[in-house]
Design a protein around this nucleic acid. Sequence first.
RNA 1: GCUCGGGUGGUGGAACUGGUAGACACGCAGGUCUCAGAAGCCUGUGCUUAACCGCAUGGGGGUUCGAGUCCCCCCCCGAGCACCA
Length: 923
Amino acid sequence: MATNCKDYDFRQIEPHWQTFWQENLSFRADNVSTKPKYYVLDMFPYPSGAGLHIGHPEGYTATDILARYKRAKGFNVLHPIGWDAFGLPAEQHAVKTGTHPASNTQNNIANFKRQIKALGFSYDWEREIDTTDPKYFRWTQWIFLQLFKRGLAYVDERPVWWCPELRTVLANEEVVDGKSEVGGFPVERRNLRQWVLRITAYAERLLADLKDVDWPDSTKRMQEAWIGRSEGAEIVFELERRPGFTPDTSGVNPDLPKLKIFTTRPDTLFGCTYMVLAPEHPLVDALTTAEHRAAVDAYKKKTAAKSDVDRMSEAAKEKTGVFTGGFAINPVNGQRVPIWIADYVLMGYGTGAIMAVPGHDERDFEFATQFSLPIPRVIAGPSGDEKLPYTGDGKLINSPGYDGMAWPEAKKKITADLAARGVGAATVNYKLRDWLFSRQRYWGEPFPVVWVGEADYAKAKQTRALPAEPVTFVEEGKKLFALPLPESALPLVLPEVQSYLPSGTGESPLANVTEWLEIWFNYETGASVPAAQPCPAGGAWIRGRRETNTMPQWAGSCWYYLRFLDPKNTDAFASAEALKYWGVPDFYVGGAEHAVLHLLYARFWHKVLFDLGVVPQHEPFTKLFHQGIILGELEFTLVLDDNGSPRSATPEDSRVLENRRTRSLTAEEVEKIGSDWFWKENPKIRVDAQSFKMSKSRGNVVSPDTIIESHGTDTLRLYLMFLGPLEAMKPWNPRGIEGVHRFLHKVWRECITAEGEVNPKISASATDSAELTKLLHETIKKVGEKIEALQFNTAISDMMVFANALQKAPSVRRETVLAFLQLLAPFAPHLTEELWQRLGGRPSIQHAPWPGYDAAQLTTTQVKLVFQVNGKHRGDQLVPVGLAEADALALARANPRVAPHLEGKGVKRVVYVPGKILNIVVE
RNA sequence: GCUCGGGUGGUGGAACUGGUAGACACGCAGGUCUCAGAAGCCUGUGCUUAACCGCAUGGGGGUUCGAGUCCCCCCCCGAGCACCA
């Protein structure tokens, strides 16, 4: 039943229909259906304490329009939402207040849910998920165990980014410009025991399979760059034997060690004039001669003390390095090549050693110039004397046996020749590193792993499938083995703790919960009792220590799209039937900030699940779209000089505005002249004008609640879509909202009179004008096409055009109005549902099939022909379709606006595009 | 520095495979209704002009009968990467 309000009372209408849809389960997605399926997914939010800001509903509105449209088109639509609720802010709040992060998280979820419900999205709330719910993270842990069993998880002590402020380690990706991405706190290097996932094992497939997904090119490119595949060769250099040289310090290999390097340009091997090792390279000590020992040690020490950030920022200025005194032998020509160490070579990539070719590599050139090393030319470009370093195309020179060959060809030949001699091989290297998967925090999924002794591990191994290579770690001289919990023992839940504060040494708060940590563990059942108690009877009880790290926030979001298929299943993360029917999302919308991290991690997990045979597709997100960021309102700032007097703002001021003395101005106090803004009070003074990202600290956050209260959610939804292209970054501008609000008012008035009755101009028996009929069919066609193409802004303007025509029509068929309401329904579902019902539409507009258009109604007999003279528009005229050129020319000559431009001039040429344009070219 | 993506009225933005630049809105101005206002409605609105003309899609050049759209050079803004050998 519709409301009986006389005016467009959105405060009454919107909650009314939201309740109606909820009570009728209007958006329930059925797992058994004969309809084609359509799965449209939003990136689920982290429920922060700040609540929703205006950027959230932008993407959500887009997917909601699509979901409602697809339902009308006859699809069984899955449109779910949930909460990515583990994460740092909740834990930091817990540290501050001493309350359990779960309670704060639940409060935040409740608030987010209230806000999202007020926006009227057609989510299937029966499928809501929460990554912190043990019923959910049981399966996150289960997937981890699958990775573990396949040897894709291991433990390593490695230098990691430690953030003293957040008291946790961060992944490389979470560190931006030497600061934590969350909070912007400084970070430093520390060696800590970490869980690492072997994502590099999937590098090739993660790269190659990008061809199978419909994603924005920029995102594909970013992933490509992140994976960073490069083809080259590993080349073995003999080290020069010399008096006093102590080979291999370990004594294991009595032979002289060899130096293995990676290069993408084996063709430039003849141009190699020195070698560079990373200062951390294991051969450095053995290579260094007595006379260079002091300098080398000093350099190594200096490098070690530097964080990567310092290393990078200094590197930008100037190359540094020292000679070791050692020499290598170039395998192609037997030349002695001096070996240096320098921090511009990174231990983490390739072999940590390079051959330097200063003639054809910019970094090597810089270094060689710095230390006066020879810079020979071995590649000649077209002119043959290109300025060095030359990295372009060309042929080999000064390379006996290969001179004259094009370099890509020489690259293959030289690699093959080295391989034949056993001193080289073609290889592929990736920039992608293994994924640091642990955090020293409380608020995350616990690892379902117990550390046990070697003998106990061997016992357990006889009863269980365990990885081919055990995951081990040496602690205080004792080798510990990682024994996973049996799957039946999941979930492993978090224990209660006294304090959420991590220990200063980098261990998680879980390390303090002794009765949880130190246990007797039954490896058959997964049962445990505190180690302080006596060991229970039975053979399967062994002494163990639980893993204290927890998983990073990415874990829960790596597979949530699969849980939505079957969220209540207790036997599997989703049933095989659900996985088969729904598959993966047909459409996925979220911010571009996840272009590499979430989207790469989720692809990795999905591929592992695919290899396990539990998901049928090899890629999780077939079609992806990024909505643009909505910036805060344009802000005007007057810059003041040291005395506090206003002065003109320079572009430099705009970059460092926070370091200047300033005064905020309102839009009324400024005016635009040319492309710059000026202060009205003194128009000589240029004012800074820019939009900033919405942030709490800037105070420019717009909450959807405010707009819903003042204009209603239908207006907000419509305005968010009308603001501009979905993918564009755009500033929020509250003034424009009146325009779409007026449009909705207009639609209301065309349907309902001031007395609350159906507008008498609407009747079942009315006849629409030919123009209105044509426009209706055009509008149906355009709106449908534009929804599919996500061009919501122009779809809305098409509907505005129709509404304007509707307003001018003296009478209109009821069917016409109903069809129009259906077009508008995905955008403004509450208003259209109300009007639909009041006009007698049944059942709910949500379940009415999308209107069709009649192609015959779109054809015309008359078209507007544009007359041009020398390419300039001089007039136009309605002409019959298919008019002959001669007739068109005659009409043009007769046209009073065209004729003067032809007078007394010879016609050189006539270009006629029937139905479009007639261009007369004259002298 | 490298790699992408963009620059269109006072504002947000339209413009199919090269074919009327500025759709649709905001704002502004005038009118109408009203005791008055609000809301509506009507008209106008790129710049210039009384009008015609002329000029106009960041700047410069080119291709074309015709360029916002294609090509070359430059400027500015945004995003990503940043010693990955």
